[in-house]
Design a protein around this nucleic acid. Structure first.
Lengths: 243, 243
DNA sequence: AAATAACCCGACAAAACGTCGAAAAAAATT
DNA sequence: AATTTTTTTCGACGTTTTGTCGGGTTATTT
């Protein structure tokens, strides 16, 4: 649980000190990080502690079962049993399997953004920030492989994701990459003249491909090394690209 | 229906004329193309024409319904109704919805390989072949958008694909890219010293990302142009990479 | 044209999903 | 601390979807 309750304070500095130093106090960057780490949780309307515990049990159980069987083969009854509750209780918390599946990855995703936010402090160049971002995203999937399988292999590419709340967090994922690419161009680390949207697709597509292959086949063996290499390689290519 | 019945003749040239010209008559390349265009169809044991028609109706209906509702929300009964048959008849052909969903993309995929095989004749450099391959893959998804949604957004990344027959065709997809990269290195078009597996991930990941984004959001508007640009850009980067 | 094989469907069984009202537990009120 | 009220849980039950089976229909073979 990194960073915890930083929610409010970064936002209301909007009208406060408008620093003019170009490098260090990057306003838009802070705002973006604040945004992605504070997407509101759905349905926080439970009163008793017992409920929070039950909800957590459901989430843990669902993650295990989904990762093991895939969403389509998983049964609500199995998840409820694994969570130690009755199926009807589960329906008190989520109105359907789909609802559960598409809410589930949210908390992990926010955790990832929080971890990144904490780790990126001190990095100055856009290139460093970008490399860290991509490396950390792969490492996060490795450390939370059950979540990774669910998110990268079932949720992210799904047609259904565009109808859910999760969509915003997914969009944030690309938004950060795009922001850093633009920043790199402004600071002269990357050549100008390219569509940053396309460049972001290139970067994310390449790294995600490595992650997905690892999640499916556990190859290459060392994901941390492979993804960092890939990220570094592609970033270098982009930096050296003739405009 | 491109190329139609070229199945057999290319195979029995295995023991025939072993041409030594390095460029034109590339044996391994022909063999690979032959392999990917002739993956055996599952369950060809139907005798009557009536059955072939019924099976085709099922496939067409399933493609429409899956693309419209997503696999998980689609109902067998809907597909059967759309195909103009009873549900129990559908079960004569496919033992489950999953079975149907994972067999469905096969024929289109083979068609794509066949179209590519026909179009690549005459291209000599590995770079040209690779560019054509990636461009055509995007264009094929655009022309068969229903199939594209099913294949790229639901089947390919799925955990379940690794258990199905379709896996082989999916593997073929990457194998061709890898082959062409290796060929490019041999012919000096690309610098040596890189893992061709990694380079293939980079290429496919980048282009697929463009395709997926288009399938989900219809952006960028012109997929043909965007994917060709992306492919060309990445191939150029790889060609210019310092070893 | 009779026999055999292939194909199709209605009726039924099984499994999974989802709802509801009442019981149990916790919190609030008196 | 007994009560009322609110929150949470669960078993019983209805609905939807999946999957099976035997017999009837159509095509093919002899």
């Amino acid at each position: 649980m990194p960073l915890s309750t930083r929610g409010i304070d970064a936002q209301d500095c909007n009208d406060a000190a408008p620093e003019d130093r170009a490098e260090a106090g990057d306003h838009a960057w802070d705002t973006l990080l604040e945004l992605v780490t504070s997407r509101p949780k759905r349905a926080p309307d439970r009163k008793q502690n017992r409920s929070k515990r039950t909800e957590q049990q459901i989430l843990n159980a669902a993650l295990r079962v989904f990762a093991r069987d895939g969403i389509s083969r998983s049964r609500i009854a199995d998840i409820a049993a694994e969570a130690g509750i009755s199926t009807s209780t589960l329906y008190e918390y989520y109105k359907s399997k789909e609802d559960l599946a598409y809410d589930l990855p949210n908390s992990h995703l926010v955790s990832f953004f929080q971890e990144y936010r904490a780790a990126v402090v001190g990095k100055t160049s856009a290139r460093e920030k970008l490399l860290l971002y991509l490396s950390m995203s792969a490492d996060f999937a490795r450390e939370h492989a059950d979540w990774g399988r669910l998110f990268y292999l079932e949720i992210w590419p799904s047609v259904l994701v565009s109808e859910t709340e999760l969509r915003h967090s997914v969009d944030d994922f690309a938004r950060i990459a795009r922001y850093l690419i633009d920043e790199g161009v402004r600071q002269g680390e990357f050549p100008a003249g390219r569509n940053s949207y396309e460049t972001a697709s290139l970067l994310l597509g390449a790294v995600n491909q490595v992650i997905i292959t690892w999640l499916l086949y556990r190859r290459p063996r060392n994901l941390t090394k492979a993804s960092a290499e890939m990220a570094d390689r592609v970033i270098t290519m982009i930096a050296n690209e003739r405009p």
